[in-house]
């Protein structure tokens, strides 16, 4: 139920984002979802890619600093209030969202949102209990 996310350290200066995108592009890796958190000096680029192992190899070979974090991809009805109902179910049980971002594509007419929780396993159980569909790693990779 967990999906591997690759987070990369980036200096906040021109051309760095392009360098990562180009590297992954030439290696034949497709970015499925991404988020960029940044400050004036540096940023963290978080990615879900179709070939995580190859992406790690390419990043390592090009001496990027990165780590791999487990996140959860959740299907959410693409309608007003869709996200709110999911978040409320989590809030009721005191599960914290550390960060979240959305997939570019839809799956079965629904939006896909990536979550990082402080208690990942607890959150998965809660979501499934509340009837929210959590995507498997295979489903995410084959999107």
């Amino acid at each position: 139920m967990k999906v591997q996310q690759i987070s990369i350290f980036m200096e906040n200066r021109a051309g760095r984002l392009a360098a990562v995108a180009r590297l992954l592009g030439t290696t034949g890796i497709n970015i499925r979802a991404l988020s960029l958190a940044d400050t004036s000096d540096f940023g963290i680029l978080r990615l879900i890619v179709d070939k995580p192992e190859e992406a790690k190899k390419a990043l390592k070979a090009n001496s990027f600093t990165f780590n791999v974090t487990d996140v959860v991809a959740v299907q959410i009805p693409d309608e007003p209030g869709g996200l709110a109902s999911v978040l409320e179910a989590l809030q009721a049980q005191n599960v914290n969202v550390e960060y979240m971002y959305a997939f570019v594509e839809k799956c079965g007419g629904k939006a896909i949102v990536v979550f990082r929780f402080d208690d990942l396993d607890g959150a998965i159980g809660l979501l499934q209990g509340a009837g929210v569909r959590v995507l498997s790693r295979q489903e995410v990779l084959s999107l």
Binding site: Q5, S7, F9, A37, T39, I44, R46, T65, F66, N67, T69, E98, Y99, R116
Partner: peptide
């Protein structure tokens, strides 16, 4: 990698 975290 020792100094890095995926959380801001």
């Amino acid at each position: 990698e020792y100094l890095f975290s995926d959380q801001m």
